[in-house]
Design a protein around this nucleic acid. Structure first.
Lengths: 402, 402
DNA sequence: GGAATTGTTTATAGTGTCGAATTAAATAAA
DNA sequence: TTTATTTAATTCGACACTATAAACAATTCC
């Protein structure tokens, strides 16, 4: 290929492979990408000259032969910030180029449903604290990623609906962020960020195809297909929380009825908790009380979890039948808290997926905190700038001599 | 790029663009692919020398300037065969390189659920007739595509379950076909072929993203994402007919309960038709009688279609929420026959998709006969061999001089 | 008829990749 | 210790591919 600028495709493949494997020798990269060893040498020399990659001794030397020289990302090459908006606070993490968290901070949202402008103020606050902790200046941040719950178009940066923002329906997230920060900015649905975090740092590392389902205040989902995040054809895809599992069923936050989320998400359980706990509502968050009652053997509380699990299992089975993934990652604290819930999910899932002559998909449970959602947002930022970066740095910093 | 053999990537892009547009001038191709005009000239010269492409006068001359010379596929460059296995017969079509049907033939299946060997015998029969009609010899056929209902892994050619074959569960379709025919052979799920036919010749022509749902004896689905057929992560994907719309619901052919197909497909309606028509069962196929009764105002018959439509609409809404496609193509004769059915679908669909600040997906109805399914199988064959072909022919036929 | 417009082709040059040979760094065997 | 073997990385030459720029071709407009 001789496409002047903008090519650099193989350069990025090498970089992506190093990121995927954490540390890889040139031979490994050549094998994984199908490039020749000569080309990998050339390209990695460029990456090293650009300061993005560095050599390291192999910690597990091979039996014989010349020892392999490992390549890894230079952590200090640049830093990015990731922010995760939840229903009560905004969390910011600062990541180095290798994806490690350098600093983090959170700021509470001052109202229950802030405007974008109010949200930005609090983001700024947390951002400043995180920078301070990391010992960095704002100009050291090469890109910023933001994840928000709701329907977010990654491409345009428009949020078509969100349960946590009060602005009227289609609100531009990208514009205000761009106006505030000088660096490239990326926004996406928060579940997609959790998925990216699994792909880059979690259970999905090195996997080409898997689904992630997040259960927290709402119900979210992300899909990795062919090693890349699948966002649906028009950018707002895989809205798992709003597939319908019941005709004319329970009322959902989105205004429709019968959404899966309306049976499974935190707010849905809290809605039922009142009825189950009856007059005995005590102190503390409703959901915690519900957990306690179920563990204590309360039949009504248990039935809430059992029904929620059955519904989620059914929805998961449909996902598996449609996407045919080898791995499904369930992420959410409740999976640990409530064994009844997990049991009901697994039973409904295995009863409703196609039984073929091959292994069922693996189901893994993974618990994430806000920090790690923010890390996913950082991954989005890294993912967004890395390609251009590699090409640009090569053009500028290292004029490969002739 | 300088990848000795095997590259030819841009060569295939040019070829694909010509196929997509039907006829295109070199400038059009350059604009669509992003290649330079000079490169397009070079590459198309190779394709012409290889006999795959030919020039043709532009039928709609532009206002001024030098008139564009259109390029189109040379129909006679090669021929392929496509075969579609249904529950009662096997249909074979022979296509030229441009995708036009040159001949077709069908042979009945001699038993209700034949073995692969018996199916092959009938395929052979129809194939021979079609060859005769086309005036071709078997060695003129460059590749063969076969579509079968059920769960078919396109990659491995294994059929994991099929309602029309009697062999035990995982049966190899590719092996026997390869043994019988000398040319490359491709197999796939029949709904994927209908989807490919829509992409190449139908309503999906030139579209990058859409879904196809087929309603005939069973319920099938195919997805085009980014201009390519999406087969799910492990090859057996998008099994729309077997997503669950009811907990512990109606019994499906696949052995599970609550599958959408068990409410919507022909056999499901036929199952209910007995009850609706009661003792008045007359002559002719049950389904036709059901159509007639519904048109005649029979409340029981109408309610069958209404429920089926509601279920399908719900399932479609879930698909739309997950894949977020701009276009959904519904294919099946019933859509024309029974307006009640179509109405119920649309109502349930529009009630259950996410309402966002943007247009709802287009819903198109398209009726296919077995011929066109077979054409899709031919498209599979063309799709399979074209890339190698272009490279091989160039290497052999036209040693571009230096 | 000349100018403008549009499409295609012809040099020319630059770039990226590969294959083969070479060098480097280690261990195993003699 | 010396020599072979194994594996990793680099260098070098060849060349296929593509782009840029300019020329060429075939029209219509004025």
């Amino acid at each position: 290929m001789a496409r002047g600028r903008e090519s650099a495709a193989n350069l990025n493949r090498v970089l992506a492979e190093i990121r995927r494997l954490g540390a890889a020798a040139r031979v490994d990269i050549a094998a994984a990408t199908g490039l020749s060893a000569a080309t990998v040498t050339l390209l990695s020399a460029d990456l090293i000259a650009a300061g993005l990659v560095e050599e390291a001794a192999s910690e597990a030397p091979n039996a014989r032969g010349r020892p392999r020289v490992m390549l890894r990302l230079s952590p200090g090459a640049l830093h990015v910030a990731g922010a995760k908006l939840s229903d009560s606070k905004i969390t910011v993490a600062i990541l180095d180029f290798a994806g490690a968290i350098v600093a983090e901070a959170a700021a509470p949202l001052l109202s229950r449903r802030p405007t974008v402008a109010q949200m930005l103020t609090q983001l700024d606050l947390a951002f400043a604290v995180a920078l301070e902790t990391a010992g960095l200046m704002e100009r050291d941040i090469a890109a910023i990623g933001l994840g928000a719950p709701g329907f977010v178009e990654g491409e345009t940066g428009r949020c078509l609906w969100s349960p946590v923002l009060s602005d009227p329906a289609p609100v531009d997230l990208l514009g205000p962020l761009r106006a505030r920060f000088g660096c490239p900015v990326f926004v996406d649905n928060d579940a997609n960020l959790a998925t990216l975090a699994e792909l880059w740092f979690g259970l999905g590392r090195g996997r080409r195809d898997f689904l992630v389902v997040t259960i927290e205040h709402g119900l979210g989902m992300g899909a990795v297909i062919g090693g890349r995040l699948f966002r649906g054809a028009r950018g707002v895809g895989v809205e798992f929380g709003h597939i319908k599992v019941q005709n004319d069923g329970a009322l959902c936050r989105c205004g429709q009825r019968g959404c899966l989320e309306a049976y499974v998400a935190d707010y849905a359980l809290a809605r039922e908790a009142g009825a189950a706990l009856g007059t005995e509502v005590g102190q503390g968050p409703l959901l915690e009380q519900l957990f306690a009652s179920a563990r204590g053997g309360d039949a009504a509380a248990q039935s809430i979890f059992r029904r929620a699990g059955r519904m989620l299992g059914l929805g998961l089975a449909n996902l598996v039948n449609l996407f045919d993934p080898p791995l499904v990652i369930l992420s959410g604290e409740r999976m640990r808290h409530e064994p009844l819930f997990a049991e009901a999910i697994m039973a409904a899932l295995s009863a409703n997926i196609l039984k073929l002559d091959r292994p069922d998909p693996e189901i893994e449970v993974h618990r994430w905190g806000d920090t790690l959602w923010a890390r996913g947002a950082g991954a989005l930022a890294l993912d967004g700038i890395t390609p251009d970066l590699a090409a640009a740095r090569r053009a500028g910093a290292s004029p490969r001599s002739v």
